[in-house]
Nucleic acid binder design. Structure first.
Length: 900
RNA sequence: UGGGACAUAGCUCAGUUGGUUAGAGUGCUACCUUGACAUGGUAGAGGUCGGCGGUUCAAAUCCGCCUGUCCCAACCA
């Protein structure tokens, strides 16, 4: 098998995804009896994949793949949302290009066109999800206007209506003039705006005195019904019960008193506009004022506005201010910053508007929902979201669910034009229940898109056609960004409790937002977005996934960084090439070695592997994707590739080393002949394959494509796909040896690193073959150390280009580079003839300085110890100090040799 | 205004119940194209752990206050 020296994701991703899907790996494996399920937050059919989706989907996909490998009957249920407003706007925009409006073509025709649009463009995001590798069970894809969803919506609506929890009422609602529709509180985005505070004179009936009020919306005075002052406000006591002239309008309005008024703000007098302000509405109700409406559904002033009829709000404001000025009714204008509500869908300024709408009564639903969540039936991760959730549930408002749109679930309510009877019913109504008249009409409005979304966990599992599979319900975890905690998560919880008598999911994992490199939110207006598909094409899906997971610390936002994405791409190449190494260099048969055949380095990597497996499993259980990925990344690169694989290379390419005794010292010398140690090689090859195989499986949930591609070519594999193999960590392990070889390996690594450091800092040519001495202070260590390094001599020679290695008990009197491995053991490289000696001197001086600093710090600590310090710590610190003192001593003596 | 989060190397972040010489990646510097990989390797420089105070023998870690950044929730016209 030939492998290219670069991993090319483009060549393998599509092919592998198609195979997975064709072979049915994404469906529930009914051989397993432990269930795990996730419902996908359904993306809008108008949407295209952005990095937020990519993060959201990668997390879910990793969980699903992990659980599948872990022996679960895991399924990820996908779907798409009809997205009432967004989709309707798309089609209306297209119509506008032909100079048409939806009203011109009529409801039926319009809906036909929306469906057409949906069939043409609505699946784009699904195709994009596949590029990312998402292991969704596409056979069970649900659209929120599919039959089941429609049935669920009707059933719920009728049930809640009969219970009295859905009602119709005329209320002041948030109105989007651009959409000509009501929107819910949650769809209003508050932004700070620089505006003005206009001070306006309201003359009293006698036209002599006047009151001044301050307002941010002067045009609403046309609908004023009263002025209000605080009953205790001394300044205005004489005016109680009097009337004032409403400026620009030939009308007298009363001065009322209400303790709502803040004496300290503005002038302490407040104009009351019940039909156009939420607070004024409440005050108006209390005082029996008329709800005088001056707005049309499109945000223009209506015929109640007299001269201003037909103007847009902003235009009316200008004209009103101008007219006030002309009539000398404007006291002053102050610049003022305040919060203004914007429609999150259309971006237009939201106007409070009086209209008849449908509402869901939320108090009881919220109480039940909060109770279960506080009982931990559903857990939020990270936990701090619980507080925010609790606050919202305790302050919940009734939910305005009707929208004046056409695309969506039409409200299942019919009114008889003859007798006025209202029928709310799941089936289409043909004639009036009460008078049998056929002259009946269905409510024109559709439901808020979130109404069907609220039923999502139930409808994806087939409800109400089927009862939900209790083994699969509650679903295991919901993964989402916190911005829709209330829109969606809270409502699903409430609805599920009402209709399934249990919460819809056990866990809610709330992840952060992907920001740009400067930490700003990615947005179309800023143009700082990154298209995940472009990134996949440039770096590969696996690289993007690993980037997102690795950067994603629990609950924290991610900063996009092309550099870090590149690093992830490089990681793929590293893994790819480690597999390539295996393929290129070994042809022998695999035989599982016995424990006593393993070299210390073999044992070391197996122990590191075992440790990594344990840790990764734990991190995944805790939703700590970043630590899991970071641990795997480090194991794979730093331990497996940088050390173990290099070590195996040295077994492969090492030379025969001869061992002699000269002047009572043991001396090893490099020979010419290649090592050809096939036995050793065979063992290492097995360990290499075994470790890489398990590493691939460990990595698969995060980077599915490359791991499968390599797995497919692997000499030892048990399954036809890595997806069907097991996840390492919770299964057995072939190495059971309990003896730790850790210290021995560390010792050998220390030798190698010491030689490298000395070479590096003294600028010894990398190609230079060098002689090295290993100094032992204490001869009784000789046997032990010889034993330890014996099996690794040829490796050390290969890795560090040694000419000879000599064990000595006297320090070479000539200038040498020296490094302490421990107080009693030093690595010495005689420098004569190799380099300029000044650099080693400089290095020694630096070391001495650092050593002295540390020793001082320690000394201070030790002298200030009180009796309370535990013996353990006391001894630790003493040992450290002792060790530092020894190092210092030998550093000084080394330096002296340079000064001679 | 209230609630929450965060503040550690130039940048992005680890640092578990207080006790390691405070770590990693990236960037930077130097050297190296050796037989998996230059999307690579080796080594090096770089931090009063936001500030002040407290608890303690000992604080990046626990407590209080302050400063700064961000998010959420809000009816102050």
């Amino acid at each position: 098998m030939k492998m290219s020296d670069r991993y090319s994701p483009g060549e393998v991703e599509q092919k592998l995804y198609e195979r997975w899907e064709k072979n049915g790996y994404f469906s529930e494996d009914d051989k397993n009896d432990k269930y795990f399920s996730i419902v996908l937050p359904p993306p809008n059919i108008t949407g295209s994949l952005h990095l937020g989706h990519a993060l959201n989907h990668t997390i879910q996909d990793s969980l699903i793949r992990w659980k599948k490998m872990n022996g679960y009957r895991a399924v990820w249920l996908p779907g798409t949302d009809h997205a009432g407003i967004a989709t309707q706007m798309q089609v209306e925009k297209a119509l506008a290009k032909q100079k048409k409006t939806r009203q011109m073509i009529g409801r039926e025709k319009f809906l036909e066109q929306v469906w057409e649009w949906k069939h043409k463009y609505g699946n784009q995001i699904v195709h994009q999800m596949k590029r990312l590798g998402s292991a969704c069970d596409w056979n069970r894809h649900l659209f929120t206007l599919d039959d089941v969803s429609v049935k669920a919506v009707k059933k719920v609506f009728v049930h809640l209506y009969k219970k009295g929890w859905i009602y119709k009422g005329t209320r002041l609602v948030n109105w989007s003039p651009a959409l000509s529709s009501a929107i819910s509180d949650l769809e209003v985005e508050h932004k700070e705006v620089s505006s003005s505070l206009w001070y306006i004179r309201y003359y009293l009936e006698d036209k002599k005195n006047y009151l001044v009020i301050a307002t941010t919306r002067p045009e609403t005075l046309l609908a004023d019904q009263a002025l209000a002052v605080h009953p205790e406000d001394e300044r205005y006591k004489e005016y109680h019960g009097k009337k004032v002239h409403l400026p620009l309008v030939n009308k007298l309005i009363p001065i009322i008193t209400d303790s709502y008024v803040d004496k300290g703000f503005g002038t302490g007098a407040l104009k009351i506009t019940p039909a156009h302000d939420f607070n004024d509405y409440e005050i108006g109700k209390k005082h029996g004022l008329e709800n005088f409406n001056i707005l049309n559904i499109d945000g223009r002033l209506n015929e109640n506005a007299g001269n201003y009829t037909g103007l847009k709000v902003a235009e009316a404001r200008k004209k009103v201010v101008q007219d006030l000025e002309d009539q000398k009714l404007l006291e002053k204008i102050e610049s003022y910053k305040h919060q203004v509500g914007f429609c999150s869908r259309s971006g237009s300024v939201v106007e409070p508007y009086l209209s008849e709408q449908w509402f869901v009564k939320m108090d009881q639903l919220a109480e039940n929902g909060l109770k279960k969540v506080l009982q931990k039936e559903t857990e939020f991760i990270p936990e701090y979201w619980l507080k925010t959730f609790e606050h919202w549930m305790n302050n919940i408002q009734d939910w305005c669910i009707s929208r004046q749109l056409w695309w969506g679930h039409r409200i299942p309510c019919w009114t008889c034009s003859d007798c006025g009877e209202v029928t709310v019913c799941e089936e289409a109504v043909e004639k009036c229940n009460s008078c049998s008249s056929k002259n009946i009409k269905q409510d024109e409005d559709v439901l808020d898109t979130w109404f069907s979304s609220a039923l999502w966990p139930m409808s994806t599992l087939g409800w109400p056609d089927k009862t939900v599979n209790q083994d699969n319900y509650p679903t295991s975890v919901l993964v989402t960004a916190p911005d829709i905690l209330f829109f969606w998560v809270a409502r699903m919880i409430m609805m599920s409790l009402e209709f399934q008598s249990q919460v819809p999911f056990r866990h809610v994992y709330l992840h952060g937002v992907v920001r740009d490199a400067q930490g700003r939110k990615m947005s179309k207006t800023l143009g700082n977005g990154e298209d995940p598909i472009d990134l996949i094409e440039e770096y590969g899906a696996d690289a993007l996934r690993l980037f997102l997971l690795d950067e994603h610390r629990m609950g924290q936002d991610i900063r996009f960084s092309r550099e870090n994405l590149k690093t992830c791409r490089n990681f793929m190449n590293k893994i790819w090439n480690s597999a390539r190494f295996v393929h290129q260099n070994f042809k022998m048969d695999l035989k599982k070695p016995q424990n006593d055949e393993l070299s210390i380095m073999d044992q070391w990597i197996l122990q590191k592997l075992q440790k990594t497996e344990k840790e990764v499993s734990k991190e995944l259980h805790d939703y700590k994707f970043s630590s899991a990925c970071t641990k795997l990344y480090r194991f794979a690169w730093l331990e497996f590739c940088d050390w173990y694989l290099e070590w195996v290379r040295s077994v492969l390419y090492g030379k025969v080393i001869s061992e002699n005794t000269e002047d009572n010292y043991t001396v090893w010398k490099a020979g010419e002949k290649p090592l050809e140690n096939t036995e050793k090689l065979s063992v290492s090859y097995y360990v290499l394959c075994y470790t890489l195989n398990r590493l691939l499986r460990l990595l698969h949930p995060f980077i599915p494509f490359i791991t499968e591609e390599i797995y497919q070519t692997w000499p030892i594999k048990d399954k036809e796909s890595i997806m069907l193999d097991t996840y390492p960590g919770e299964d057995g392990h072939f190495l059971h040896s309990k003896t730790s070889k850790e210290t021995q390996v560390e010792f050998i690594r220390d030798i190698v690193v010491a030689i490298r450091t000395l070479r590096g800092e003294n600028n010894i040519k990398p190609s230079a073959q060098i002689d090295v001495e290993l100094y032992l202070e204490d001869v009784k260590d000789l046997e032990k150390i010889t034993q330890t390094i014996k099996g690794s001599i040829s490796n050390i020679f290969f890795l560090e280009k040694l000419n000879s290695l000599k064990i000595v008990d006297q320090i070479n009197p000539k200038p040498s580079a020296i490094m302490n491995l421990s107080p009693d053991v030093k690595i010495i490289i005689p420098l004569e003839g190799l380099v300029d000696l000044a650099s080693e001197k400089k290095r020694l001086e630096k070391q001495i300085k650092k050593c002295e600093e540390n020793l001082n710090k320690l000394q201070n600590q030790i002298t200030s110890f009180s009796e309370k310090v535990p013996e353990r710590v006391r001894k630790d610190k003493k040992d450290q100090a002792e060790s530092l003192r020894n190092s210092l001593k030998s550093l000084h003596s080394s330096l002296e040799r340079f000064n001679k």
